[in-house]
Every structure is written in structure tokens, then in C-alpha cells.
Nucleic acid binder design. Sequence first.
DNA 1: GATGAATGAGTTTTCATTCAT
DNA 2: AATGAATGAAAACTCATTCAT
Lengths: 206, 206, 206, 206
Amino acid sequence: MSPGAPAASGRDVQGSRPLRADAQRNRTRILDAADAVFAVKGPTASTEEIAQRAEVAIGTLFRHFPTKEALVEAVFVGRLDALAEQARSLAGAADPGAAFFAFLTEAVRQSTIKHTFADALADAGVNLHAYEGTVAEAIRDLQQSIGELLGRAQQAARVRVDIDVRTLIALIAGAAHAIGYASQDPAIERLVLSVTFDGLRPPVSP
Amino acid sequence: MSPGAPAASGRDVQGSRPLRADAQRNRTRILDAADAVFAVKGPTASTEEIAQRAEVAIGTLFRHFPTKEALVEAVFVGRLDALAEQARSLAGAADPGAAFFAFLTEAVRQSTIKHTFADALADAGVNLHAYEGTVAEAIRDLQQSIGELLGRAQQAARVRVDIDVRTLIALIAGAAHAIGYASQDPAIERLVLSVTFDGLRPPVSP
Amino acid sequence: MSPGAPAASGRDVQGSRPLRADAQRNRTRILDAADAVFAVKGPTASTEEIAQRAEVAIGTLFRHFPTKEALVEAVFVGRLDALAEQARSLAGAADPGAAFFAFLTEAVRQSTIKHTFADALADAGVNLHAYEGTVAEAIRDLQQSIGELLGRAQQAARVRVDIDVRTLIALIAGAAHAIGYASQDPAIERLVLSVTFDGLRPPVSP
Amino acid sequence: MSPGAPAASGRDVQGSRPLRADAQRNRTRILDAADAVFAVKGPTASTEEIAQRAEVAIGTLFRHFPTKEALVEAVFVGRLDALAEQARSLAGAADPGAAFFAFLTEAVRQSTIKHTFADALADAGVNLHAYEGTVAEAIRDLQQSIGELLGRAQQAARVRVDIDVRTLIALIAGAAHAIGYASQDPAIERLVLSVTFDGLRPPVSP
DNA sequence: GATGAATGAGTTTTCATTCAT
DNA sequence: AATGAATGAAAACTCATTCAT
């Protein structure tokens, strides 16, 4: 599991005392397993399968996440945090345009693994008002870090000024989807990114 | 239900005599219901719910579609046929560029109703080799009619020549996804389409 | 279908006017189909399959036999009649012992095709009191014709005198079952018949 | 439930740790219920009915036996084990002929409860090659223990030497069938056994 | 009478969730 | 806290039987 993976999320559950060491370890294992299984089978994968992969009993899974939905959300938040982290790490780059498009490429690639995430990302990114709790928090955080990158790229005249963060997130999810199907075909992947990037550039001034 | 809706599909099942009037009516009701329910809840919606909405017994549903998969495919084929029909109706237009972008707009809007369709569309469009039967047939038909529009627009220098049909279908699905979440927000819809269109245009020659 | 097959049964349904020619033909087709299908798949075979094999609509099947049970019974009666016919054709033979064992061999072989029949035969043969209608009638008829053969063989001192018709029918069904499993293995078939025959012979007088 | 009944089977599922006390209790209840229900209604009885009789939820039944087939097999193996146990307990008897016929009587009586078992017994006994897993194992075990009894009885000149284990099992099943129907009538039961026993004895040397 | 579409209770199986150990 | 067995409400699918055409 790469650094920045969901389980490494530092987001604290408010109001709960720190977990015992073994409990914390189980929580991490469950999140990692869920992340992997959801990525392959989508969110209809069974909790039982996740528990098995995490090598914990099903009861343990439900002790940590009272419903399946809670688990799905936690995985989602983990991915959002990882994305936001990535955006922040590019925030100070010398070339704002390069940083922006580099982030875009990476974000699309990561979302590509499984549509579920792209779906959830776009939905949350665009309809933040419909969310609450940790998801809303994570999205707000992500929007801010992406906003930073976007703003700088726009100031550097590398991106159309009429694009806002919510539209950008929608575009990322869309491109991820488009590419997701063509996993065998690098040509399509390149073309989709190319079209999206070109469409984002400011119009050539006459 | 708009004209060209799935139930109106003219694709004939080979070798079966025409259905009795009442059976045809039920088949249509089931397809319409499935189309509507899948649009809202995705393909995991239960066959029972669809049967209820169609006001037929569950046995009737399974008489018409022997497995759930067959029903899902039939709905899908219906939508593909409607799209292809649309492409064909624009094929002879005087302005190939306008026709192309008009089709794109319409295709994205229709796919937007539910991601399921966009997903399936892109998957089938890109990975046609993985399909067979009526779905493969419908996709091939759609690819051809879209190809026509695309080819003319490229000859008229209104679309980049490096785009092929498969990439285009992937882009349509991607844009549909992106927009799908922003159903409340026409601004995002406009921007996503604008970015996609601009990205598709041929580079300005210096 | 060999002569003597169930459909050829001459047993009249009491009180019903003679069937129209085409109806009679359909009745025959259904019975033949049911006989064949039940022989292969047992009585859990679906009515639909039988109708298809008979090339009639399912509604036609149920017009002739108001319940599946009625159809099963009719097939059964057909086989009982065929057996009884066979017994009668041997009744006048010169050698009563040979006639008896020839019948036995034939009866076992025929019942062997499918255990269902052996089961039903034994049950009806032994527990005649539990049956009524055409089945009871057919069994009584069969018991009488077998009784004839048995009586003569006993008088000729070729069969133990303590055997009665009901026991004999049970033994036939039992042997048929035993052999049914060994359809691949003629050795077992021969041995089972040999044991049964030997056991039926009168004890050697000292 | 007599000792040696299916639930008491000592056959261990390899590789699985011993069940928790309550789970073992439920497993036993389910097996006992299945044994009883199958005996009355045959193997088409519904899993739901078995679960009800065992007073467990349907999910519990399927946790213990992942398919209905697995349950049917487990019941079958239980009975086979009980029979083999019985054969073994008679193996050392002083009088091999008496032991052999005592076993036969008992085996027929037990198989008589329901034809399903006799059917399965004969099929597996004769066509062992078509089985695998625990069923094959149990049958092999049974064949061996019966073979022992048979061999000794043959050496003592109490049974025809041309009989082999497979034929013997077929005969047991056949007799069980024959008797099964005559449960009300001890006379028939006695006669069927008598015929079978007599048929198995070696021919009187002149 | 024949047809075959419609019905709906019943079947096996899955799975999120609870709770005794 | 962890375990994993138990629960029971679905879910997809079947099939004997009915009834409109």
C-alpha cells in the first residue's frame, strides 16, 4: 500500500478517545482491505469479503463501522484526503501551469482505478451541500487545495478563467470515467486527456 | 417517454413470430418500467420493483426476459438504438460541424439521465470485442452512424483529425458523467460541454 | 412407440363422450410425451417440457389432464395396462413355470427404465386400498392377470406356495430398483434376477 | 433418533477446527431435521421446512451447508456411516452366516424408512465411480465393512460365492424398496426377506 | 377446442446486521 | 474488544395453473 493510502488518514473521529493500539491496527486493516476490494468489485462487494481480506471477524468490522455505508464513506474520505495531499504537495511549484496539469493527470489516473470513486468524487464535489460529517469536511478541504492550484494556473494564464473548482472536479471525474474503460488502450487515454487539457486552456487571443 | 425511447426499438428478435398484441404491450411496459427504474436506482434495482411499476406479475417479467441480465441488455440496446437514430437523422445536415456538435450535445444530455447508461455506453463503445448478440450489433450500428457524423465534421475541418469513434464515445460518456452530478446547475453543464467542444476543435493554425 | 404403450390404453374415461379426432390425437401425444419425459427425468419434470415434447400448448395439456397429478396417474395406468396385457398374453402358455419367469423377467426390465414406475407399482400393488378411480381399477386388473400366472406356476410346483400376488409385485419392484442402478452392468442384472428367481422356487424336498 | 443416527456421524471435515458448542448443536439439529423431513417427503422437501423443523433461521442452515445438495449429501453420509458401523459391530461374530443375515435384515429395515436412501445407497454402491468427496469415502468404507461380512459368510458356505459386494448392496436396496410399501404388512416383509435370503444361499449340492 | 401469455406462491441462496460466547 | 454463529428480509428465478384471445 502506497504512502498516502486511505488508512493513513489523519482525520480524527471527533469525540472518541484514542483507540487501543490493536483496535487502531484493525481499523487500518479494514480500511485497506475495503479500499482494495471496492476498487476491484465496486461498492456491492460484501462486507464479509472485506473482513476476510482484512483478517478480522465480521463483528469487528461492524464494531468499527456501524453500517456498510459508514465504511464506504470512510474509504472515500481516505481517497479524498490522499488527493488533497497531492494537490498541496504541488501548490508551491515554480510553474503553476505545469503543476496544475500534472495534478490533473494524476487525479484522473487515480480516479480511473474504479468508477465508483470518480462517481462519488464528482457527486460530492458538485453537490457538497448534500453531504455532511467527515465527507463534507474532506471535500471542502480538497476543494480548497485544488482551488489553490487552479487559481494560480489561471493567474498564470494557463487555464480559462471561467472554470471554477466544482466544474473542474466534474471534469476530472468525467475524464476518469472516459479513460476507465480504455484501460487496455493507451491511445485513447492520451487522447481523452489531450482533449480535456486543450479545452481547459484559455482561448488564443487574436 | 420521448419518442425513440427504448420500448419503441424496432430491433427484431430473429426467428420469433410477432408477439400477440397483449404480450407486446406488456413487453413495452416492462421495458419502460425498467428504463425508468434503472435510471433512478441503477442496475441493482430489483426485478420485483420493475414488475410492480410495470403492473405485471414477476412471472411475466421473466417470461419476456429470461434473466435479469437479458432485461438490462434490452434496455441498453433500446437506448443505443435511440442514439443511433438521432445520429442518422443529423447525417444529411448542410453544416457538418453544427450537426456534429448538435449530436454531441444531445448524446451527452441523454446519457446524463443515468450514469449506468454512460458507463455501459463507454464500455461497449470502447470494448466492443467483449460483447456479443444484440448489444454488439447495436453498438456497431451506433459506431457507424456516429462515424459518419465525425468523418464529415473532420473533413470540414471542424474536428481534430486524430479523434476516432471509440475515443469520441468515451468522451461522450465522460462528459455525461461529469454533467450528471450537476443536474441542478446549468452553468456547470454549459462549461463541461464547452471544454469538451473546444478540446475537440482542430488546433488553430499559426 | 411400441404397441402396448400407455397412449394406446383402451381404458375409457367413464361418462365422457368420445373425444373429437384431433383431441384424441392430442391426448395420445401428451401421454406419450409424458411417459418418455417421466422415464428420463422422473415425475418432477415440468409440465411445460412435456407439452413441448408433445408439441401442444400448455393449455391443451391442462385441458386433458386437469392437474399434473392426473397426468402422472394416467401415465401410470398406461404402464399398468401394458403389463397386464403382457401377463394375459402368457396366461395360456404350455409351460406355466417358464411363462411365469418369462413374465417376471420382462416386468422387471420394463420397470427398470425408471424407478418412479417401480415405486408406484409396488405402492399401488401392495396398498391398493389407498387408491381409487382408474388406478385402482388398473391395479386390480393387473393383480388378477398376474395372479393367474402365479397360481399356475404354483400348481406346477415351480414357485413357493406361500407367495401371494402382493408380495410378488413388491418383489418385482424391488428387483427392478436393484437393477436400475446397474444399467451399465449386465452381470449385476443377471445376478439380481438369479437370486430373486432362486428365492421364489419351492424348497427342495428331502 | 437411534444411536448411530446421522447427526452422530463421527466423520470429520478435514481442516476445520471443532465447532463452537452452540454451532455443533445447531448442525446436529439441522441434520436430524433434514433426515426426518427427507425421510417423509424425499429430497425435494424444501430447505425452509427443514429449517423450521430444526428451529433455526434459514440463514443458519445455509451457513452450515452452503447448498441444498451439500445438506442432502451430509444426511446420506450419516446414514452410510451408521450402516457401516453396524456391519463392523457384527464382523467378529462367531457364526458368520447368522451375522451376515442379521446385518442384511437390519440394513433392509433401516433403508426401508425411505426409498430415497435405498435409491441413493444402491446408486452410490453400484456406481461409486460417479461420486467423490465424503460420499465416495463413506461408500468405500461401507463396501469394505460389508465385504468383510460377505466374505466370511461365503467362506462358511452360507452364501453363494458368485455374489459380490456391489450386487449385494443392490439387493439390499431392492428389498428395502419392496418392503417399504408394505410397512403395514409384516407378512410381506417376512416373505420378501425370506425370498431374498433363500436366493442368496448356495445351491444344495446333490 | 387450442393457444400461449399471465399469475403468484414457492424455491434456493445472499448478505447486512445483531448478539451470545 | 474480538469472534463468528444466528438472524431474516430480500433477490433472482421456477412452475403448476388460469384465462383472455
